[in-house]
């Protein structure tokens, strides 16, 4: 795809999401590959927060992107692609985690050992703060963390979270409230 003398196809990576989605709907895997490389990291990062474990995150990402490929013809507005991908990831992620929780699973990685070094552009203080938040998220009970990630990173409404997790809205509200209070409490110690 990066061949210097293939003028048309080498320009695929420079096209808008809208054009790439149109081509992918027509069955063009090359166009979908560009979308996967463009948005796959976001899907993975979100899945990783949702699952709390890298091993699950990779499987969730694979499943979510496969589902996206299959369901692409149902995407009404390609401009909303990122939100649509996150929503598919939420559903795939919770489904996969629910299936796995019924059987013995590999233990979640310990906080602090999941990621290697901070991203290069982060300053040292910034990196410490992000690491602290990351660890605080890890310490939340699973359902609290999932509610919080679905809401704050996935952008879901309370109603959507209730449907994804098959719990009541009341329960979503309670989980979010407890998660927020716990995170704020921990943050006070980082001043």
């Amino acid at each position: 795809m990066d061949g210097p003398e293939a003028p048309g196809s080498s320009d695929l990576a420079q096209q808008t999401d809208v054009l790439l989605v149109e081509r992918a709907i027509d069955g063009d895997v090359d166009a979908f590959e560009v979308l996967v490389r463009r948005h796959g990291p976001m899907v993975y990062a979100y899945a990783r927060r949702l699952a709390g474990a890298a091993v699950d995150a990779e499987d969730i990402t694979q499943e979510a992107l496969l589902q996206a490929w299959r369901q692409l013809p149902t995407l009404r507005d390609a401009v909303a692609l990122r939100g649509w991908l996150l929503s598919i990831t939420s559903h795939c992620g919770i489904d996969l985690l629910r299936r796995r929780r019924t059987t013995p699973t590999p233990k979640d990685l310990e906080p602090g050992t999941v990621d290697d070094s901070p991203a290069p552009e982060s300053s040292a203080i910034e990196a410490c703060l992000l690491e602290a938040l990351s660890e605080a998220l890890h310490r939340l009970p699973e359902q609290q963390r999932q509610c919080w990630v679905l809401r704050e990173i996935g952008g879901h409404s309370y109603q959507e979270i209730a449907e994804i997790l098959t719990i009541s809205i009341h329960s979503v509200r309670g989980n979010l409230s407890r998660a927020r209070a716990a995170l704020l409490r921990e943050m006070e110690a980082w001043q």
Binding site: G40, P41, M42, Y44, A45, Y46, R48, R49, D115, D116, P118, A119, E121, S122, E126, L130, L133, S134, E152, I153
Partner: peptide, 12 residues
């Protein structure tokens, strides 16, 4: 949280 999400994407 916003910065953490961006940082996660950079790592990914």
């Amino acid at each position: 949280t916003d910065r953490l999400a961006q940082d996660d994407i950079c790592r990914a």
